[in-house]
Design a protein around this nucleic acid. Structure first.
Length: 816
DNA sequence: AGCACGCCGACT
DNA sequence: GTCGGCGTGCTC
């Protein structure tokens, strides 16, 4: 006797809520939460994941039946489903969108439409139009056609009307086919036929060999390979013996060798042993003990360790402790693709226990890692933010390294989640611990420590007691300028570079703008070329001889005539890395200079190659953008120059001071990491800026207190979420309404700046223009509250819209 | 995501 | 008069 069974299914689409299907009696035994089921929605088929079992039939609609159950065991654990739900609610998206981001593409199935020829139809095509006839004729021949074949046939993108007509006229019908995309990798292995396992038989065979010398050679190669490598694959054997597949086939037909296809792992397994070949320094050991102590009381611990203090060694010990207890560890890094240094170090220590996972992996490999994590075979995952979605079986610890890094937050496709916050939630589901590590913690994490929510561990001495670099500020206003513009390289910086070069040391020059000059300005009327799509000034690139928008990437030819007054005298303003490189080359003609920015390192390999050159001291001066900061440990740098700190101190981000401190601290951290004290020179036109004082003293605590006093709120969920709404809404009126209300709240203070029709406003939001307005807000608590009230009102309106029914907007960023 | 439906501008 | 653009809405 079967009870009627209904299931809530997550479909990888943006749907306002999850839909319900009925389960036919014969499938009820196989259905459980976490398995994939094949369902029909509208007229497409999807593979969805069962979220919940329901025993009552929904009243408002008549559920359709599912078509198939695709798995015998769940592909995700219940915690995954819980995490997806949390992310969907917290970041205002559908669970389907989370699923889309979470699952490897090859575990998702998609349907492919196939047209099937209707045999019963008469062969009279007289009632068909030209394009219908073309398809019908092909169908008659092939009996079935795929959608993309029809597209090729008609050479038109819009084939649906034609297909619809053909169905109406009874020429064919449509079949939707779900396809499993994951394929296991098979390799052909070669083995000796069992009768030659006997030594005598084998010797007999070899001694009495008459014809086919090439086959003999092949057999000997095989015997050699077996001895040296144990297992022999077909391509390896053929390569070694330089033989053809036909010759191998000959041996097989004589029943001497046997070919066998076997599924193999794509992931090459290193030996599974742990090698810890270092001991912690006293300071590191103390930090390690404190973290352990912290974990016994709190779920989350923040490890605040100055640059080059050796946090990685502490992590390594913690990972070791965790896996010896049989638990799994997730080590998250903001941008995994760029940190081969850490990958190498951890692989050395944990060998086959560790797997690397990020979105650049090929889809089949990702499925294999997914499964290995699910069975618990893989103990340590080193990955980018997406690795948070892996189905850990027994998770003990999550490490979020460089915790402050903004790339933990996914910006563009939904779900716009913050991997650090989501990790804390996920860990709480698994009763696992979270270690946040950074030399420059985010204000919100540090705040949570002061509120006793997280444990705090300080590691404030560099490894080997190397001193922190000496930081000096150069007032660029006091440097006499040759022309009207600012000076890029002050005499003190030049002198310092000179000294470093003489000492055979390396220099990093940091300039946070790529290109040659960040903007052009008309010398006659002051007009500045801007991007057509974004309210952003265009940067002049000398190498490409073009103007580029650094926001949307559009490239324009160089403008010589002013669009406003028609004159031809443009001035180049400020300097980007390209120009700095040029100036440095002029000043130091004998030095080896390289540039590292988005333009000069296109591929991952370029980046690695440049790092290697620098490590091997084949470059003396490296000019670069933020890129020079990412997880790199250079030993011979003793001077870092920050060319233009003004640009950093005026970030167009509402976390101005926080970001400025982080960046300057991280950049200076590159200096004097191993031998001797490093020097940092900061060129700035406002040397009294408070953040500079904190940087000089390496004093994060003072920055934190400064921010706390100046900023009562750390994030503005209504703002961020509203912007997300505006971003994602195709329905213009909602976006307009939302933007308008937001603008009304802001207009009083910023006058006509925010006036105008709503569409440009939405565009400005997209261009982060609005952020520039928002950053001015935190200074006045009363004004924030005013705006927040208005925006919250707007959110109520958005919530009452039926598309957002069932979506909760939580009032706080706190994930726990 | 797809696809249907519906409402306005440019055409045989 | 219709064709076709995309803005809006619905799918269990």
């Amino acid at each position: 006797m079967f009870f009627p069974l209904f299931i809530e299914v997550i479909i990888p689409l943006f749907l306002p809520k999850n839909y319900t299907w009925a389960v036919p009696a014969q499938m009820q035994a196989a259905v459980q939460p976490g398995v994939r089921v094949e369902v029909q929605l509208k007229n497409k088929r999807y593979a969805g994941i069962v979220k919940k079992m329901l025993d009552k039939k929904p009243e408002e609609f008549e559920p359709k039946e599912i078509l198939n159950v695709l798995d015998t065991e769940p592909v995700v654990y219940p915690q995954q489903l819980d995490l997806w739900q949390w992310i969907a609610r917290y970041y205002m998206c559908s669970e389907g969108e989370v699923m889309q981001a979470a699952m490897p593409a090859n575990l998702k199935l998609s349907s492919e439409s196939i047209l099937i020829w209707n045999e019963e139809r008469s062969y009279d095509f007289s009632d068909l139009t030209d394009s219908e006839y073309v398809v019908a004729e092909a169908l008659e021949l092939k009996k079935e056609l795929r959608l993309n074949e029809v597209q090729q046939l008609l050479d038109a993108s819009n084939v649906y009307p034609v297909i619809k007509k053909l169905i109406e006229k009874g020429v064919c019908h449509v079949w939707e086919e779900l396809k499993e995309k994951y394929r296991s990798k098979t390799e052909t292995f070669v083995t000796l036929h069992s009768k030659y396992n006997n030594e005598d038989e084998l010797a007999d065979l070899l001694n009495n060999w008459s014809k086919a010398p090439k086959q003999m050679e092949l057999l000997l190669s095989y015997l050699h390979l077996v001895k040296t490598e144990g297992e022999v694959t077909q391509p390896k054997l053929l390569k070694k013996s330089n033989a053809t597949a036909a010759q191998l086939k000959g041996l097989c037909e004589k029943n001497i060798l046997v070919l066998e296809k076997r599924a193999t792992d794509r992931i090459r397994l290193l030996p599974r042993d742990i090698q810890i070949d270092f001991t912690l320094s006293a300071a590191q050991q103390k930090a390690f003990d404190e973290v352990q102590q912290g974990f016994s009381e709190k779920q989350v611990c923040l490890l605040h360790g100055v640059t080059a203090s050796g946090k990685t060694e502490v992590y390594t010990k913690l990972i070791e402790a965790c896996i010896t207890q049989g638990k799994q560890v997730l080590y998250m890094l903001p941008e995994i693709a760029l940190t081969s240094q850490i990958i190498r170090r951890l692989q050395k220590h944990f060998g086959g226990y560790i797997a690397i996972y990020h979105s650049k992996f090929n889809p089949n490999e990702r499925v294999e890692i997914w499964n290995k994590v699910k069975t618990g075979e893989t103990k340590v995952v080193l990955g980018a933010r997406s690795s948070l979605f892996l189905p850990f079986k027994d998770l003990g610890l999550i490490i979020a390294d460089e915790e402050h890094d903004a790339s933990y937050k996914q910006q563009d496709p939904a779900p716009r989640y913050h991997a650090r916050d989501a990790a804390i939630y996920y860990a709480s589901l698994n009763n696992a611990r979270v270690l946040l590590g950074s030399a420059t913690p985010s204000i919100e994490s540090y705040y949570n420590c002061t509120q006793q929510k997280y444990a705090l561990v300080q590691l404030d001495e560099r490894y080997g007691q190397v001193e922190l670099p000496q930081i000096s500020v150069i007032d660029i206003k006091k440097v006499p300028a040759q022309d009207k513009g600012k000076v890029a390289l002050s005499p003190s910086l030049i002198a310092a570079i000179d000294t470093s070069l003489q000492q055979q040391k390396q220099v990093i020059l940091f300039q946070n703008r790529r290109g040659y000059s960040p903007y052009l300005i008309c010398g006659t009327c002051g007009w500045i070329p801007q991007c057509r799509h974004c309210d952003v000034t265009l940067t002049y690139h000398k190498a490409k001889n073009s103007l580029a928008c650094h926001y949307c990437g559009t490239s324009y030819p160089v403008i010589n005539t002013c669009a406003a007054c028609g004159s031809h005298n443009f001035n180049q303003k400020n300097f980007g890395t390209e120009k700095i490189e040029e100036l440095v080359a002029e000043a130091f003609p004998n030095a080896r200079i390289s540039r590292m920015d988005y333009d000069s390192v296109k591929g991952k390999n370029d980046h690695d190659a440049l790092i290697k050159l620098f490590e091997q001291q084949r470059i003396d001066i490296l000019v670069g953008t933020q890129m020079v900061v990412k997880g790199l440990d250079f030993e011979h740098v003793n001077l870092v120059g920050i060319i233009d700190a003004d640009g950093i101190l005026n970030f167009t981000d509402f976390r101005v001071n926080e970001r400025a401190f982080q960046l300057m601290e991280q950049v200076s951290g590159r200096a004097g990491r191993r031998d001797g004290k490093g020097t940092v020179l900061i060129q700035v036109s406002n040397p009294m800026h408070p953040v500079l004082q904190f940087v000089k003293e390496h004093d994060f605590t003072r920055l934190f207190q400064f921010e706390l006093a100046n900023r009562k709120q750390f994030d503005y969920p209504p703002f961020t979420r509203l912007i997300q709404v505006i971003f994602k809404h195709k329905e213009k009126h909602i976006a307009e309404e939302a933007a308008n209300i937001m603008m009304q709240g802001l207009k009083k203070d910023f006058g006509n700046e925010c006036n105008g029709p709503a569409q440009p406003v939405v565009d400005r939001v997209r261009n982060q223009y609005l952020w520039e307005i928002l950053i001015k807000l935190p200074k006045d608590a009363a004004r924030i509250n005013l705006c927040k009230r208005e925006i919250q009102q707007q959110i109520v309106i958005i919530q009452s819209n039926k598309r957002y029914r069932g979506v909760t907007i939580l009032p706080d960023v706190d994930p726990v």
